[in-house]
Design a protein around this nucleic acid. Structure first.
Lengths: 205, 205
DNA sequence: GCATTATTTTAATCCAGATTAAAATTCTTC
DNA sequence: GAAGAATTTTAATCTGGATTAAAATAATGC
């Protein structure tokens, strides 16, 4: 039960590699990132990566699993510490953004799931679906306890998760920017959930 | 002056090709999409695509230019028809979502900009930046005319654009779903801009 | 119907970048 | 400081999918 932080050198290097890969994939795209690019960031040779991973597909796969873990951690913490539904959702947004822009980053954008081999693809999709379902459940809880105005939880979830998923696309490690995201994202995304004046400016068209 | 709809067969086919490519890239990713995949959708052979485009890079490039056009159209229309700043922003969101999920879709996600050749990359980046700037200007206008609560326009813009940019990732043409997005996205994203109760549930951490 | 142009296919190349095997280096332990 | 394991590199191969050239088919105007 004592396997929290990576202990062996191998595990440490592997985690470094996954971050380097995430950085590459987010910035250059999957096809635009050669193993050499990833290896360069680590000061290694492309062939060295094969000591940690079977092939490029497994590298992406592990990036995605890691991204899923980061999301789950944020959600777990939010659920543990949140009071009402809205508070929990807002915390999730904040914690998730904090993680992505901070110690756990960079986190890979799940852009290439279809390139994964069937078993890996299914697994990642399942993780992703579960995460979405968990988030929608939070929204429903908020609607029940009255902290969130009634809404289509599927679409609302899509909107919020979209905004979050896109963060790694434009965030490149600037600490000042990180501060701003952490402050603003929970505001803009959370505030949209409470308001009752939803129908305004919807009249015509 | 009179070049609105594509007229020649060549232009029609080319537009069909761009949509097919966007669909492929969004679903399978760039690397996961072979020219054969794109050609199959059109009932063609991969080599036939070279009649319309110099190479795969240009295909992506044109997809991205087209995506930019769709965004601009939505913004133009919103600016033309909107009243206050908030109304314009809300309209932009609705029009953009309508376009992406409707007649102009599918629209490519700008995931592989770094794979473009330098000139193309610069051009697409410029289009993308301009679009972001225009959107931020809308937010500022709304803050000035009092319809939008003061906020970090850069981050708020990132949040909203992220939610929008992610749509093609999960929307695959279902008309019922389209209805829901069009109804809910302006609500959730627009409502977050007006509220004054922004600071709630921000106290602790 | 024929000549010309537009469009697509067939059948090769061609190549960057993934992958592999063996050798070299570094690290550990006694 | 030598044996053995862990890690990385060097130097090849290997390959899918992009690309190309020439031929075949379809469309159009006369």
């Amino acid at each position: 039960m004592g396997e929290n932080a990576a202990e062996t050198r191998w595990e440490l290097q592997k985690d470094r590699m996954l971050r380097a890969a995430a950085q590459c994939f987010n910035q250059k795209g999957y096809s635009g990132s050669s193993l050499k690019d990833v290896a360069n960031i680590l000061g290694l040779t492309d062939a060295a990566l094969y000591y940690y991973v079977k092939n490029k597909e497994e590298l992406v796969y592990l990036c995605y699993v890691r991204a899923g873990e980061v999301g789950q951690e944020s959600m777990d913490r939010a659920v543990a510490e949140g009071s009402c539904g809205l508070d929990t959702v807002t915390r999730y947004i904040r914690y998730h953004v904090e993680a992505m822009t901070g110690e756990r980053g960079p986190v890979a954008i799940l852009s290439e799931i279809p390139s994964l081999q069937p078993e890996h693809r299914e697994e990642v999709l399942q993780i992703s679906r579960d995460h979405g379902t968990r988030f929608e459940a939070l929204l429903e809880r908020g609607i029940e306890d009255g902290s969130i105005a009634p809404c289509d939880v599927r679409m609302t979830g899509n909107a919020i998760m979209g905004a979050l998923n896109w963060v790694p696309k434009w965030f490149h490690g600037d600490a000042d920017v990180a501060e701003n995201v952490i402050r603003e994202f929970p505001k803009i995304l959370g505030a949209g959930l409470t308001t009752t004046d939803r129908q305004q400016s919807q009249e015509n068209l």
